[in-house]
């Protein structure tokens, strides 16, 4: 197979082409949709989803799932917003680090339960999803933190333009680069792929699968905490129900981007494109006059299509394995004796 053919067959390339095609198609209905300034707006709108999708990806790669990312975002966001309102003098850097730290701690709780108590990730994070939201309610007493209570610095930094893009977008770019490096060039990233690709083989290779999952959950939490600050500052309000249901968008971005829910398969680029795909649809449909409910149905259909697409690829791979295994079963024990004869 030539390099070009391989490149074209990659799902990342395919997904990119589909997104480009969608942009072109939407431009014919809504002039100006495809111009660079609007694309930059779409990217900025999708920045938080990209970060959260990468958090989700890290966990899903290890054959787990983190349904608590949005609740974690809400709690961390609420905590720093209240702190900013209560003590306006605290430096922003400290607040951001605090958001990341709180998020990481909540993620570590998930990871600990999965690692040490060997609980199924979906049960753990379904539980912590409601617990973290409940904590946000207890913390705030159900009250909102509104724009006028937050400092201008807290609200404006993510909006500052640097080289044509807001800081929010740049933060997403930096997170993408860091997660890319982590997935590809660190022993932890490799261990995450191995833990998800074949947990038993990973154990045999001397990898502590439970600990790898713990780290993945902690990292996921840290990114959710960062997203908490970004969300509160972007929408200039903090309340208990922010980003509700957003954990499903993060899972959807991963699935569309080719991350296998069974673990061990997928790339950072795929996840980013999966998030951008959802971002483009979200931005385009209102422009061409489609109701939010239809949008939800469309997003849902795309997710199912993506899963069908993934399943077909998996099955193709499965067939090869099955064939080998069948041959193994049948030739087992025979070949040696024939060689001997």
């Amino acid at each position: 197979m030539t390099m070009t053919a391989t490149f074209l067959k990659r799902r990342e390339t395919l997904l990119f082409l589909i997104i480009a095609l969608m942009v072109v198609a939407f431009s014919t209905r809504a002039p100006g949709f495809g111009n660079p300034r609007n694309l930059a707006v779409i990217f900025n709108d999708t920045a938080i989803l990209i970060i959260l999708a990468l958090a989700q990806m890290t966990v899903v790669l290890t054959k787990a799932i983190d349904l608590s990312v949005a609740a974690n975002l809400a709690f961390s966001g609420m905590a720093v917003a209240m702190l900013n309102a209560a003590v306006p003098g605290l430096p922003l850097v400290l607040l951001i680090l605090l958001a990341i730290g709180i998020g990481a701690a909540l993620g570590a709780i998930n990871g600990f339960l999965v690692w040490r108590l060997e609980m199924p990730p979906i049960v753990v994070t379904l539980g912590t999803l409601t617990i973290y939201r409940g904590m946000a309610f207890v913390l705030s007493g159900g009250a909102w933190v509104n724009a006028h209570q937050m400092t201008p610095e807290f609200l404006n930094v993510p909006r500052l333009g640097i080289a044509g893009l807001p800081v929010l977008s740049w933060v997403a770019v930096i997170v993408v680069v860091l997660v890319f490096l982590m997935a590809r060039y660190t022993p932890f990233g490799r261990s995450a792929y191995a833990a998800g690709g074949n947990p038993v083989a990973a154990v045999y290779a001397g990898i502590d699968v439970g600990y790898t999952r713990f780290l993945a959950f902690t990292l996921s939490g840290a990114l959710a905490g960062l997203s908490g600050y970004l969300w509160v500052s972007r929408y200039a309000v903090a309340y208990v129900d922010i980003a509700i249901g957003f954990e499903l968008d993060s899972v959807a971005a991963c699935v569309i981007g080719g991350i296998s829910i069974a673990g061990g398969v997928g790339t950072v680029i795929g996840t980013v494109l999966g998030a951008l795909f959802l971002g483009v649809i979200k931005n385009a449909l209102p422009v061409i006059g489609i109701s939010p409910f239809t949008q939800m149905a469309i997003s849902g259909s795309v997710i199912i299509l993506a899963v069908v697409f993934n399943a077909r690829r998996e099955r193709h791979r499965g067939r090869i394995i099955l064939r080998n295994r069948e041959a193994e079963d049948n030739s087992s024990g025979k070949a040696g004796k024939e060689a001997l004869a």
Partner: peptide, 10 residues
């Protein structure tokens, strides 16, 4: 090999 030895997608 499949179950204990290799991560086949890698």
């Amino acid at each position: 090999r499949g179950r204990h030895g290799l991560a086949l997608p890698m």
